[in-house]
Design a protein around this nucleic acid. Structure first.
Lengths: 344, 344
DNA sequence: GGGCCAAATGATAGCGCAATCATTTACTCT
DNA sequence: AGAGTAAATGATTGCGCTATCATTTGGCCC
């Protein structure tokens, strides 16, 4: 009804284009992949043929012949966790500009699922991989090593990276938060954790280490759950923590901002004043945190930059450019806001 | 250092596996793709060879030979907008279970970029496509039609869908919100819009239609910007709206919850009481909305379900199952909360 | 003007797999 | 027991492209 020619539903191939343009197939291939190797005249001629036929190259044939997939495989533990939005934005941004496609999988925070997903990814022959954290199964790590491609493990600092590593120390961040609270005169510092993935564990270990260093017994101040984090869960956990501690805590460190916001909103309902009666600190510094009342103290993490850096590193590796350092500490920053007071 | 055999970095192919297993290549292929067509004995034998060699099939060769990519192309306008998290979760969930990979692109709310991205996607020979909305360029629509694969346009109801369509009427939702506010006795109803993508436009048109129907002049009550939405922007827009209207509005409909939360937080800072002095309504019903104080009236949208339904539909089409209806209205629900009062 | 080099273009082969059809084997039924 | 059938396995071929090498063309120099 619309286009005049090839309403026949046969796929248009390189050869068809070549025939129309009156050149050989390889010349068409060059027009697409290395345009400057073809004379202006032919290039225009071929381009016209491509346009008129609506030719779209078959990437499978191309990849099979060249063993270049132009794909970067990315594995993240959760699509719902907003934290990964920014990371992904950075990854897509850099990858797109450099002409790479991104194949994304969600591992649901499960190393076993991750292994399965990595298999899937590898069968797409990605030229590089960006994965989250360091808790892959042994088999998964072997698969990755054997793939012999640039790999970045991101989000946290790993002891023995498979290849490259971009992140920051969640342990240190947890330790720092507690140190600030201690400095501000708090002693009965609570901890709320959900999901308890390796990074949350590290934050908690940092909390515990700082408490231990200050000689404070944290045993009754900690509440955790393997459930996925949410504001609703923050409300719940806050209630149960207040019940179990009989309101004895003077401050609370939440493993992320969702929980902290939940705690904040619930404290308002419970008529517990923040920060007068309770200092509150989150983690990740999502946008809402600086706008709620009182604004929420949180640990700011350069997530977008982490995505950008990770992708830049694999692309540098792919293009043979030198990598300054295989492990990059992207840092973080504790942002003190109105939800924490100085208790001294 | 690790694995014993094939430390040589040659790729392991079907033929290698076949040789080790003592069968023909095609049998190995069958073990992978149609296991029940192979006897138990051989299947185990071949599986052992696969495992010992760490064989991973080359999807390019497979796709080229079978012209099946097992890929679903997905185009969304933004990776940062949380709204798409839930949609994507639904898509990945269903696609993954059915053995499809998802190739995701971000069109940055630009039809031109979308066209470019669709070209990229199509060169991956996706078996189906899920795209956002109906404002593709003419060229893009032609490309899609020519691809001759199942397509779902999601997020909104389209007049002339390219193929299938899953969404709801943003116009009607905007109209409904305003109707509820009118019913509650409000008359000076403001509107705040950001980004102004087609769906936001529809919500605004719904707002205007309802105002017109009530005989209320909305000209001075509307503030919009093409900037991307955020809580911070909500604060800003709210300030400028209050300045330009001299606080004359008695209620405010925001095109999404980010803006509404910004307005809410800013109103607290400006000592404007919500809902006593101003009723507030958002859109999308993100998690924070039901937990802020006062809780935020919003339009709840089944985003996850939209992703699920869209993916189910393309998969049904791919597997030749009947499609009940090509256009599915997934609905929405105005959830009245404490940020809106009854003013009668 | 012959020889030489670089740029432009082409011919051929093969990437790794699955579709197709052919062959073998095992088993049932009369 | 022989014919017939289904299940299991194999040989061949080609998917559409690019790597590789070969060939042609057009200058440029001495």
């Amino acid at each position: 009804m619309r286009s005049t020619k090839n309403t026949t539903h046969k796929k248009v191939t390189l050869v068809d284009v070549a025939a129309v343009a009156g050149v050989s197939a390889i010349t068409v291939s060059r027009v697409i992949n290395q345009p400057d190797k073809v004379s202006d005249l032919l290039r225009r001629q071929v381009q016209a043929a491509i346009d008129s036929l609506g030719y779209i190259p078959n990437q499978f044939a191309s990849s099979l012949a060249s063993s270049k997939s132009r794909v970067i495989g990315v594995a993240i533990p959760s699509l719902s966790n907003i934290v990964f939005n920014d990371v992904l934005r950075g990854i897509y941004e850099v990858a797109g500009k450099a002409g790479y496609k991104v194949l994304l999988v969600d591992t649901h925070y499960s190393p076993l699922e991750e292994e399965k997903m990595v298999r899937t990814l590898l069968s797409q022959a990605p030229e590089a991989m960006i994965i989250t954290g360091g808790d892959q199964t042994r088999a998964c790590q072997q698969l990755l090593q054997k793939a012999n491609i640039p790999i970045v493990q991101m989000m946290e600092l790993i002891d023995q990276p498979l290849d490259m590593n971009v992140g920051f120390s969640h342990w240190q961040a947890g330790y720092d938060v507690v140190s600030k609270l201690l400095e501000a005169g708090h002693t009965r510092i609570g901890f709320m954790g959900a999901r308890m993935d390796p990074r949350v564990q590290q934050r908690m270990l940092g909390y515990k280490a700082a408490m231990d260093a200050a000689g404070i017994d944290w045993k009754n101040y900690v509440v955790t759950t393997p459930e996925p984090s949410s504001i609703a869960l923050g409300c719940e956990l806050f209630r149960s923590l207040m019940a179990s501690t009989h309101g004895a805590i003077d401050s609370l460190f939440c493993c992320n901002d969702d929980l902290a916001l939940g705690a904040l909103f619930e404290s308002q309902r419970m008529n517990i004043r923040v920060p007068e009666q309770l200092s509150l600190c989150g983690f990740n510094d999502i946008e809402a945190s600086q706008f709620v009342n009182p604004s929420l103290t949180s640990v700011h993490v350069p997530r977008y930059e982490m995505g950008v850096k990770s992708t830049e590193m694999v692309i540098r590796a792919l293009t043979g450019k030198p990598i300054e350092q295989k492990q990059v500490d992207i840092g973080y920053e504790v942002r003190l806001r109105k939800s924490t007071r100085n208790a001294k």
